[in-house]
């Protein structure tokens, strides 16, 4: 098909965003299908190396989402995650990794519509940015040069 379909990986926490995505399903709200959801117990568990691994594996965009501050099922997982994301985004930005391709959000278990909106707007954004060639190139062909 002509139009570029970005490959999106979503790292979500089980108690809020995963449940929010379930609610999107039960309310039959349609959203673009090129996103794959990976379940974590908490955003605190999401390792930043998985993000670079996803880019290396061919993802064009990443969504990382979890509970709103103070709503974390484990009290503080999302606070540590937020700080980790701040440092990681700064490092990636300094190293020229495209932080526009990583969308962070808080989606609660009651925000089914918001999840669909986040995925759709992320999809539009990544479509505009096109495939993440220079990272994929790095992790595939150049290995064998």
């Amino acid at each position: 098909m002509s139009e570029f379909e970005p490959k999106i990986v979503a790292f979500v926490c089980n108690w809020c965003t995963y449940a929010g995505a379930d609610l999107t399903g039960t309310s039959r709200i349609k959203y673009s299908s090129n996103v794959r959801i990976v379940r974590f117990p908490c955003t605190g568990r999401i390792d930043y190396m998985l993000l670079t691994k996803a880019f290396a594996g061919g993802a064009d965009g990443i969504i990382v989402s979890g509970c709103h501050p103070n709503d974390c099922h484990y009290t503080s997982g999302n606070f540590y995650a937020r700080r980790r994301w701040m440092v990681f985004r700064r490092l990636c930005d300094f190293m020229g990794i495209d932080t526009r391709r990583i969308i962070f959000s808080w989606v609660s278990a009651a925000e089914g519509a918001k999840w669909a909106q986040i995925v759709n707007s992320a999809n539009e954004e990544f479509k505009k940015l096109g495939p993440y060639e220079n990272y994929h190139k790095l992790s595939t062909q150049e290995i064998f040069e």
Binding site: P41, G44, R45, Y48
Partner: peptide, 10 residues
């Protein structure tokens, strides 16, 4: 331990 996994990532 409640299994939040923050320690694993830290």
């Amino acid at each position: 331990c409640q299994g939040c996994g923050t320690c694993v990532a830290v």
